[in-house]
């Protein structure tokens, strides 16, 4: 007897809406979803719930890679560990010396701020978050981390690594959160040139190797090697944290402005974990934004 699978699956009597009608309906629903999600952001709660449901799948996909990392770390030889330990001890001595100098500077800074009636804004707490999934597809530079609203993570929270600014939290689920990296084309970060104090905005370019300062005047005092730090405008990032180093100054023919490329200091491509930071931005003194676009944008 021929089973049903031997035949083409096509009913003799067509029931229900036609292919075109179903397609039309689903296209309309998709369009409504896209508008509600992208333009209005109405679906954040729904997305968080669904993200929580998908977290086990994401975790299990990453599990073999985490296990491989764990195993390779476990298999590090004794001599390697001794060497590493020696290097870290040396680094620690150096850092402690630098810390002492910084403590002195911080005290001096506090005295000066007291004198000028302004307040300091520094990170007062941070949480180490492990990267569960890195999403570089289609130039959306996002990572999923294993901390969520149950750890107090909030949308807009700054994320850093040991070298510099990494990005900010865009979506939060109960046990996971999505972080947009500073290299994402949709990310804008208010920054300042450390040497001159000049403020501008750094945009992601969709590549991990560089971000861009597109709005600088042609005669701006800026040179390769200048350190770019957060300006603190917009209230998302505390001021003074390193973002990158000026790499190249490009003058487009026929254009007044200067396009500056910056090499991010954060190890965007290789960090296995990031620091989610809390800082008291209530202490931020009101500063007039430099342009209507000022402030870290998230899509």
């Amino acid at each position: 007897m021929a089973s049903r699978q031997d035949h083409d699956y096509r009913p003799l009597l067509v029931s229900g809406p036609s292919l075109a009608a179903r397609l039309f309906m689903l296209v309309i629903v998709s369009g409504i979803l896209m508008i509600a999600d992208h333009r209005a952001g109405y679906l954040d709660a729904l997305r968080s719930t669904l993200m929580a449901g998908l977290y086990p799948l994401q975790r299990s996909v990453d599990a073999p890679f985490s296990a491989a990392r764990w195993l390779s770390e476990g298999l590090a030889t004794h001599s390697m560990l001794r060497r590493e330990n020696g290097r870290l001890a040396e680094e620690n001595r150096e850092l402690r010396l630098r810390q002492m100098r910084l403590d002195a500077l911080e005290r001096e800074n506090a005295r000066l701020r007291e004198a000028s009636q302004t307040t300091a804004r520094v990170i007062d707490r941070y949480l180490v978050a492990e990267l569960v999934r890195v999403e570089m597809d289609r130039l959306r530079h996002r990572v999923l981390v294993n901390r969520g609203s149950t750890d107090g993570v909030y949308v807009g929270q700054p994320a850093l690594d040991a070298q510099g600014v990494f990005g900010q939290v865009t979506r939060v689920g109960p046990v996971s959160a999505e972080v947009i990296m500073i290299s994402d084309p949709a990310h804008a970060l208010p920054v300042a040139i450390n040497r001159t104090g000049m403020r501008t905005i750094a945009y992601g370019r969709g590549t991990l190797e560089r971000i861009e300062l597109p709005f600088l005047p042609g005669n701006a005092d800026i040179e390769p090697g200048d350190l770019v730090v957060t300006s603190g405008l917009g209230g998302v990032f505390p001021p003074g944290y390193p973002v990158g180093e000026v790499e190249e100054l490009l003058k487009e023919p026929g254009e007044q402005g200067l396009r500056v490329t910056v090499r991010p200091l954060a190890r965007l491509s290789s960090d296995p974990e990031v620091l989610l930071a809390w800082y008291d931005n209530q202490l931020v003194e009101p500063v007039a934004p430099m342009s209507p676009n000022d402030g870290a944008e998230v899509p």
């Binding site: 296209v27 998709s30 979803l33 997305r47 999403e135 996002r142």
Partner: peptide, 22 residues
Amino acid sequence: AGLLLDLLQGGMLGQNALAMVV
């Protein structure tokens, strides 16, 4: 399936769903 991809890839909800269904 498209919606699942939207969630996993963190893109606009409905974008992959639309492309997949068409």
